[in-house]
């Protein structure tokens, strides 16, 4: 109850200040997030809310902190020595940095796709079934088979691999490997999928397939994508956040960011003056 009212309040505040669709429900809410790598501060007072079942793109020049912030959302930064996160991030109103939170459960709810396709050096089937297996999401082999099939179908990979599920996932092409990683992520039915430059290691055709896929996945998942390509952000996202030097400069509807940015830095960046 308390959580619900709190998130409602946050939504109200944010909608007032940022002027976007009031009906959209925030899935992830970050408040004054500061991140330090040892002595160096990587993020400064980032406050943002991520709308449910939509694609939010983080853009900005290299080293601006967009990936750092992305990795705060499923606490992957925990694995980095000397990384300290201050401030609050909540998922459906639950503080994900609360001591009582189980990080394993969080990462099941917030899936991640990495920059370089990183399938396990195991079979395609094992790659997709691994998540459901360790989280105990399937009762028996048939159910697991179903999860694998539907995940691969949703990732648009089923037709290409259905006859060779037992072959190693590392034997696929780069684009197929990345779709396998997406299938692996959605097999555990996450609520949010984080994508850290998922197309930067792929050719244009594979990139186009992934972008189509992201657009389809939007119906069921909340997607946050970090990208270097402004065209990609414009193509796939509904909302865009622009980061610069560890500061969240501007957040708004993608169309507005690219056509009518309110901040001078955003304008300079999207017109190619730096970055």
């Amino acid at each position: 109850m308390n959580d619900a009212s709190m998130s409602a309040e946050m939504t109200a505040n944010l909608s007032k200040s940022l002027d976007f669709d009031q009906a959209a429900k925030p899935k992830v809410v970050a408040k004054d997030v500061n991140v330090f790598y040892g002595e160096k501060q990587a993020l400064f007072d980032v406050s943002i809310d991520i709308v449910e079942k939509s694609v939010t793109a983080f853009i900005g020049p290299s080293g601006c902190g967009k990936s750092t912030f992305l990795r705060c959302i499923n606490r992957m930064n925990d694995t980095i020595e000397g990384c300290v996160v201050k401030g609050g991030i909540s998922l459906d109103g639950d503080d994900i940095y609360a001591p009582s939170l189980d990080v394993v459960e969080l990462r099941a709810r917030v899936g991640m796709v990495f920059q370089k396709p990183n399938p396990f050096p195991k079979s395609i089937y094992e790659n997709v079934s691994y998540g459901p297996r360790i989280h105990g999401l399937a009762r028996g082999k048939t159910e697991l088979d179903e999860i694998v099939e539907s995940s691969l179908k949703r990732a648009g990979l089923w037709e290409e691999v259905k006859d060779r599920l037992n072959e190693p996932g590392t034997g696929l092409s780069g684009g197929q490997q990345q779709r396998l990683c997406i299938a692996r992520a959605i097999a555990v039915s996450p609520e949010v999928i984080l994508m850290d430059e998922p197309c930067s290691a792929l050719d244009p055709i594979a990139t186009a397939r992934i972008e189509e896929l992201i657009d389809e996945l939007r119906a069921n998942f909340t997607i946050i994508i970090v990208t270097h390509s402004m065209q990609q952000a414009a193509r796939v996202s509904q909302r865009t956040a622009f980061f610069h030097l560890g500061i969240l400069v501007e957040l708004g509807a993608t169309e507005q960011i690219f056509t009518n940015p309110s901040d001078k830095r955003t304008q300079d960046y999207i017109t190619g003056r730096f970055g």
Partner: peptide, 22 residues
């Protein structure tokens, strides 16, 4: 490679599972 560890952790494997399984 660290990418294998990240893949394991990213899908919600505990550290122990990441080490023993991958």
């Amino acid at each position: 490679p660290p990418s294998i560890r990240e893949a394991g952790l990213g899908i919600g494997a505990s550290k122990h599972q990441m080490v023993m399984h991958h």
